[in-house]
Simulated assay, not measured.
Amino acid sequence: MAGLQKDPAFERWAHLRENTHLYFRWNKRTVNKTLFWGIVIPVGLTILSYKTDRKWDFTGAQTKKELNMEK
């Protein structure tokens, strides 16, 4: 029974993935992704949570009353 042949492309990808810290460089693409995922998304979710804070009354769901939206 013959063994599986290793694909050089997969081997190279695995090597780069295991050693990311050696090959990482800051460039325009990585800076943009870092700013987006590290600043824009958390700030956007924070703004969204503050805008919707105490806006909905879900106590009616427990008592089978209508759900009321406060202004």
Results as ranks from 00 to 15, higher is better:
R12G: 03
I47M: 04
L67S: 02
Q62D: 11
L48P: 01
L16T: 02
M1Q: 07
F24V: 02
K55L: 12
L45M: 15
I47S: 03
K51H: 09
K28I: 06
F36A: 01
R12K: 10
P8S: 03
P42R: 00
R12D: 09
Q62M: 07
N19F: 04
A61G: 08
N32C: 05
D57E: 14
K28Y: 06
P42V: 04
L48E: 03
K64N: 15
Y50A: 00
K33W: 13
L48N: 07
L4K: 10
F10G: 00
T46A: 10
R54S: 11
A2M: 13
H15A: 06
E66W: 03
D53H: 08
K71M: 11
T30G: 10
W13H: 10
E11D: 07
T52L: 13
I41R: 02
K51L: 14
G38P: 00
D7F: 06
P8N: 02
G3S: 12
Y50M: 04
M1T: 11
I47E: 01
K64S: 08
D57N: 13
D57H: 08
W26N: 06
T59A: 12
G60P: 05
L35A: 03
G44V: 04
R29D: 15
R17N: 09
K64T: 05
K6F: 06
E70Y: 05
L16I: 01
N68R: 14
L22D: 11
G38L: 01
A14Q: 12
T52S: 08
K55I: 06
L67Q: 11
W37E: 12
F10H: 05
K55R: 12
L48S: 09
T63M: 08
F36T: 02
V40D: 02
N27E: 15
W26D: 04
T63F: 11
L67M: 14
V40A: 09
M69Y: 14
N27I: 04
E66G: 01
I47V: 15
I47G: 02
V43D: 00
K51S: 06
Q62K: 08
Y50Q: 02
G3I: 01
N27T: 09
L67R: 11
A2I: 09
T59S: 14
E18I: 00
L45A: 10
M1C: 11
L22T: 05
H15D: 12
W37M: 12
H21E: 14
D7W: 05
